[in-house]
């Protein structure tokens, strides 16, 4: 959160420095571009915060439940159960007609939260497993991840936009007329503009990965049944279908990574850095460990995973 605002600030300062000659005798007396960037980011964050969940829901084509359909009825009941277990008010429930099994939660706070489940998930999973998935989403709501994620996706968009804008106008930049010691500072400033979208994307992914583990643990606290969630994850892993309506911008909201790139199932430093979700096998293994069961641990390279620490 703070990092993102810092990024806005730094980008603003860089633009000031490069384009407007701030902090020198000739330039304006205060950093205009920084202020513009800050105002811009706050506005974007605020409107996104108010409208974000509506936009996300409509971007995946979420629809209201039809209580007459047995599957939908069951989903509604399962969500009610989990709302009771978590002590949150009942969230709005949506389905989206897509064969890929996935789910996500969104909303500013507990009161305005919404859970969306694909029909693929409903047909693939049994009651106990659906309960695990819904518990995971309720955990995101309870831990306030949904609002953090909403803000992050908005801010991420803001940083990318700002940096694009700066990059494009670089060629129209006025020539340097400064002493060489000052020109040295121009290089890091330029670099910052170029790489900040990348870094902020990595930051978003790091936040999202940690949150997924936490939500798994909280989900087990709700259901007291780690096996349900573990089996759900196994089934989803084996189904291996990408969710068509997800984009890079919304990927970190989902239950499992909707983009299904091959890197997501690998476990390693680089793969970890580039993925918005923790490796699915690792999540399954941790859940089996919570249930104090060995599970299908042998084929999951337990030793290799343990070497990385018990996180």
């Amino acid at each position: 959160m703070f990092c993102f605002l810092l990024f806005f600030f730094l980008i603003g300062l860089s633009i000031d420095y490069l384009f407007l000659d701030a902090f020198t005798a000739r330039g304006p007396s205060f950093p205009i571009a920084t202020l513009i960037a800050l105002v811009f980011s706050v506005t974007v964050a605020y409107t996104g915060y108010r409208q974000g969940s509506k936009l996300i829901l409509s971007s995946v084509g979420a629809e209201q439940l039809d209580i007459q359909i047995p599957e939908h009825r069951e989903l509604h009941n399962v969500v009610t159960e989990m709302a009771l277990a978590s002590g949150c008010p009942m969230p709005k429930v949506y389905v989206t007609y897509d064969p890929a099994p996935n789910a996500f939660a969104t909303g500013r706070n507990e009161e305005s939260a919404a859970i969306c489940i694909t029909t693929g998930l409903l047909t693939l999973l049994g009651r106990e497993e659906t309960q695990g998935v819904v518990a995971h989403e309720m955990a995101h709501i309870k831990n306030n991840d949904t609002s953090v994620m909403l803000l992050i996706s908005v801010l991420l968009g803001g940083v990318v936009l700002l940096s694009d804008w700066a990059q494009r106008s670089i060629f129209g930049m006025r020539p340097f007329r400064r002493a060489s010691s000052q020109a040295l500072l121009a290089i890091p400033a330029l670099l910052l503009i170029v790489i900040s979208p990348l870094i902020s994307r990595l930051l978003a992914m790091a936040v999202s990965r940690q949150r997924e583990y936490l939500a798994d643990a909280t989900a087990v606290e709700f259901t007291r049944n780690p096996l349900g969630l573990a089996k759900a994850l196994e089934k989803i892993r084996d189904a291996g279908m990408p969710f068509q309506k997800a984009t890079r911008g919304t990927a970190h909201l989902f239950f499992t990574n909707p983009l299904r790139r091959r890197i997501d199932n690998r476990d390693g430093k680089l793969a970890n850095l580039l993925s918005s979700h923790p490796p699915i096998n690792r999540r399954i293994m941790l859940l089996y460990q919570m249930g104090a069961l060995p599970g299908p641990a042998a084929r999951l390279r337990v030793e290799a995973l343990d070497a990385q620490g018990a996180r």
């Binding site: 009941n77 009610t80 159960e81 978590s86």
Partner: peptide, 9 residues
């Protein structure tokens, strides 16, 4: 289930 979860909570 709801009875069980409500008691748990």
């Amino acid at each position: 289930n709801q009875i069980a979860f409500a008691r748990q909570y």
